[in-house]
């Protein structure tokens, strides 16, 4: 196994250009599980922890190397809460937002916040730079539009981010769980509401009909909240697996979205 440890973004991009099929190692919280339990044996590994540009967090730009423990202390309440629910403190000190994007698990904890904001994912190769909206970047469960030679540089958030935001995640123990359902709700002062849910579809789900319906409700009645929950449940597409059932996930999606909305009203 060849290991490259670039010290600057230019070096990192040169490394990915020279080894377009290389495996990128950031926090290693997903990759090392694959090494230990799926016998992944990459030929070339590019470790990007030492690349200072990827550690940057400048307003609306969050570098790919920003760890969950930094996100926990950041200014965005829902993202901070999402980061707080990731693994143990040790995992949060290692895992990064770029890794969460790169793995593209339907259960990725930072993804509902990024999806609710229609965040862009910034990608660079030696030849070019491009920005893809989150749903252009994540193309399926654990599938992305990342091309050989490209690096995830970070996520770019829109200027307008409401203060009223919340995130919650369902698991069957008090901490250290993979989401059975996760949900992020954002609400602007004009009523515009964005909702994103994890672990209830092949990628993060945006229940558009529910968003549209509730965005017109300035002071949603109890009946409107019920309808909102019903629409959320109708729009998710969960599966049965060893962690939960489709029926529970569908039910819990509506309950959780409604509770979060009530918290931000």
């Amino acid at each position: 196994m060849e290991t490259l440890l670039p010290r600057h973004l230019d070096e990192a991009l040169a490394a990915t250009a020279a080894h377009p099929e290389a495996t990128i190692l950031a926090g290693g919280t997903d990759l090392m599980v694959a090494v230990a339990y799926q016998a992944l044996r990459p030929a070339v590994v590019i470790g990007i922890r030492r690349v200072p540009e990827l550690q940057e967090w400048d307003g609306r730009f969050i570098g790919a190397g920003v760890t969950y423990s930094r996100l926990e202390r950041g200014p965005f309440a829902a993202l901070a809460q999402a980061a707080r629910t990731v693994g143990s403190p040790q995992i949060r000190s290692a895992g990064t937002i770029g890794g969460n994007l790169g793995t593209a698990s339907p259960a990725g904890d930072s993804l509902p916040f990024l999806a609710a904001l229609d965040a862009e994912v910034l990608l660079r190769s030696q030849a070019a730079e491009r920005a893809l909206r989150w749903d252009e970047f994540i193309t399926g469960p654990k599938r992305t539009a990342l091309q050989p030679g490209e690096l995830i540089v970070g996520a770019r958030l829109p200027e307008a981010i409401p203060d009223r935001q919340a995130f919650a995640k369902i698991g069957t123990r008090t901490a250290m769980v993979i989401a059975i359902v996760s949900c992020c709700v954002l609400r602007w002062d004009d009523g515009t509401t964005r909702v994103a849910l994890g672990s209830v579809g092949p990628t993060t789900v945006r229940p558009r009909a529910a968003e549209t319906m509730i965005s017109t409700e300035r002071r949603p009645s109890s009946a409107a909240l019920d309808e909102f929950a019903r629409l959320v449940s109708a729009e998710v597409s969960p599966i049965n697996d060893h962690r939960s059932t489709a029926a529970y996930r569908r039910h819990a999606s509506g309950v959780l979205a409604r509770r979060l909305l009530e918290r931000v009203l």
Binding site: F167, A168, K169, G171, T174, A175, S182
Partner: peptide, 10 residues
């Protein structure tokens, strides 16, 4: 930490 749902804030 002392409520159902724990740190997931459900």
């Amino acid at each position: 930490r002392r409520l159902p749902g724990g740190t997931g804030l459900t």
